[in-house]
């Protein structure tokens, strides 16, 4: 019985945080999510995920001074930090993930979580854990694959209908409202890139990095995708 109440308490807290995050995304409307992956030839590497809300810090700060908005309880800074620490703890306990670091800046509203991974499957676990923990899954499918023999790195991505529905609930003109919200993905390799298949991605001058910067709304509505297949030299 006690366990049920504890679980319920955790779920309630989680709902608070996730609702607040949804609220922050939708009401603040200007933010950057930056994902940087450094991949080694053996499939291990380093990932850093950064959520930067400083463009909307006035609005976010206003939101956090309120107890609730539209019936949704706004968590305090302490509650948010607690949830982030819990997510970090989960990551530390995940097989294949090590050296988990995190930083929070509640003046500029920036959160950064990074870690090393020993294999590409652990990278998938990292994404899943964060997305599940904060219920911010914007895709039905988000998977990384790497074949060390063929030197092909692939990311599969399918946008989630849930986020599309959430965005449709907002004001009539979403495009203008989210004109300054971006999802940026940077992947760096040790071997040069032969080719990549996302027409919105750019290859670095040293041929060892790919940058993909997309409007968040395009991603949600499926107009653009994070999916890519990158072939490296052998």
């Amino acid at each position: 019985m006690k366990g049920v109440f504890e679980l319920k308490g955790q779920v309630n807290r989680l709902c608070v945080v996730l609702c607040a995050l949804v609220m922050v995304f939708t009401l603040s409307s200007c933010f950057d999510f930056v994902e940087q992956i450094d991949l080694k030839p053996n499939g291990s590497g380093h990932i850093a995920a950064t959520l930067n809300l400083s463009k909307s810090k006035t609005k976010v700060s206003s939101l956090m001074k309120m107890k609730s908005v539209k019936g949704i309880q706004i968590p305090t800074q302490a509650e948010m930090e607690k949830e982030i620490r819990a997510a970090v703890q989960l990551l530390k306990q995940t097989k294949g993930i090590s050296n988990v670091q995190y930083q929070t800046d509640f003046t500029n509203f920036i959160v950064n979580i990074s870690c090393d991974f020993s294999q590409i499957e652990s990278l998938n676990a990292f994404s899943d854990i964060l997305a599940n923990r904060f219920k911010t899954k914007i895709s039905n499918s988000n998977r990384y694959y790497y074949n060390a023999q063929t030197n092909i790195f692939e990311r599969k991505f399918v946008a989630s209908n849930t986020w599309k529905a959430k965005f449709n609930q907002l004001g009539s003109d979403n495009t203008a409202q989210f004109a300054d919200a971006f999802y940026t993905q940077i992947i760096r390799f040790e071997k040069p890139i032969v080719s990549q298949e996302n027409n919105k991605a750019k290859v670095a001058a040293n041929k060892k990095g790919v940058l993909l910067k997309l409007l968040f709304t395009d991603l949600v509505y499926g107009k653009s995708t994070l999916a890519n297949k990158i072939t490296l030299t052998k």
Partner: peptide, 23 residues
């Protein structure tokens, strides 16, 4: 208002920069 943004060099290494915007 000031905010934090990122610039990328040719190799896509990110650097934090301070920018301003009107609110």
């Amino acid at each position: 208002k000031e905010y934090i943004d990122y610039t990328y060099d040719d190799d896509y290494n990110a650097t934090e920069v301070k920018k301003t915007k009107d609110e």
